[in-house]
Structure formats: structure tokens, C-alpha cells
Amino acid sequence: MQKKIAIALTIILTTSGLAHASSEGAWNALSAKANGTCIGQSRMISPEASAPVVFDDSVGKIAIMLRGTITKGKSPVNLVCLYDKKSGKASIEEFRWLGR
């Protein structure tokens, strides 16, 4: 009986470290895809993009803040982009920080 428990514990301990965490390369690729999609859809001229804010899997979204101009000579605008990790689609809306 003790031998069976020892074997079971060994199996649990040796496989518990094999969680299905994504590699750094996979996260970088996902961030690059979200960035590219958001920047492309924004139609901004040389926008600045924030670091991606990755929400947990229950939400399934990545948020990216963009700042730039849409046409030459215009004032900069601020956009927030929500990228859907499953569908690969993005939704973009303008925002004003605290009413400005």
C-alpha cells in the first residue's frame, strides 16, 4: 500500500510542473498580432501604442491604447482597442481622458 502511494506521489510531483503555460515566444507572437491588428484598423499615421493589457481567459481580450493622428495636421486622438484572442478581431473606440 505504501509503495502504491509513493508511486502515485512521484507521478503527481513529476507531472505537476508540466502545466500548459504559454511560452514567452507565444505571448510575444500574440502581442504582435494584437498590435498589428489594432494599429492597422486605427488608420493612424505612426501611432504610439501602449504595452498590451492581457485579460484572463474568461474575458479573452487584450487592450491596447493608441495615440496619434488620423490625418496630417489634425490634433492627436486617443483610441482604445480591444482585441479578441479567439476570433482575432478588434474593436476600436476613441476616448478622452477625464473629459479632456
Score class of each variant (00 low, 15 high):
1 M>W: 00
2 Q>S: 06
3 K>Q: 07
3 K>P: 00
4 K>E: 10
4 K>A: 11
4 K>Y: 08
5 I>V: 10
6 A>E: 06
6 A>S: 07
7 I>S: 10
7 I>L: 15
8 A>R: 07
8 A>L: 13
9 L>N: 13
9 L>P: 04
9 L>V: 09
11 I>T: 08
11 I>V: 14
11 I>C: 05
12 I>C: 11
12 I>G: 05
12 I>A: 15
13 L>Q: 08
14 T>P: 04
14 T>M: 14
15 T>I: 15
15 T>G: 13
17 G>Y: 03
19 A>H: 11
20 H>G: 15
21 A>E: 10
22 S>T: 00
23 S>K: 09
24 E>V: 03
24 E>R: 08
25 G>T: 05
26 A>I: 05
27 W>Y: 04
28 N>E: 14
30 L>P: 00
30 L>V: 02
30 L>C: 00
31 S>A: 15
32 A>C: 04
32 A>M: 13
32 A>R: 12
32 A>I: 08
34 A>N: 09
34 A>S: 09
37 T>E: 09
37 T>L: 03
38 C>R: 01
40 G>V: 05
40 G>W: 01
40 G>E: 00
41 Q>A: 11
41 Q>I: 02
41 Q>E: 13
42 S>A: 15
42 S>C: 12
43 R>K: 15
43 R>L: 09
44 M>F: 10
45 I>P: 03
45 I>H: 05
46 S>T: 10
46 S>W: 01
46 S>M: 06
47 P>I: 02
47 P>C: 02
48 E>T: 04
51 A>G: 12
53 V>Q: 13
59 V>M: 05
60 G>R: 11
60 G>D: 12
60 G>M: 13
61 K>W: 09
63 A>R: 14
64 I>G: 11
65 M>Y: 06
66 L>M: 00
67 R>Y: 01
67 R>T: 10
69 T>C: 00
70 I>R: 08
72 K>M: 04
72 K>F: 06
74 K>F: 03
74 K>M: 08
76 P>Y: 02
77 V>N: 02
82 L>W: 04
83 Y>S: 06
83 Y>F: 15
85 K>S: 04
88 G>K: 07
89 K>Y: 01
89 K>I: 08
89 K>R: 12
89 K>A: 14
90 A>V: 14
91 S>D: 10
91 S>R: 07
92 I>W: 07
92 I>P: 14
94 E>G: 00
94 E>D: 01
95 F>Y: 11
96 R>S: 12
97 W>H: 13
97 W>L: 15
98 L>E: 07
98 L>K: 13
98 L>H: 11
98 L>T: 03
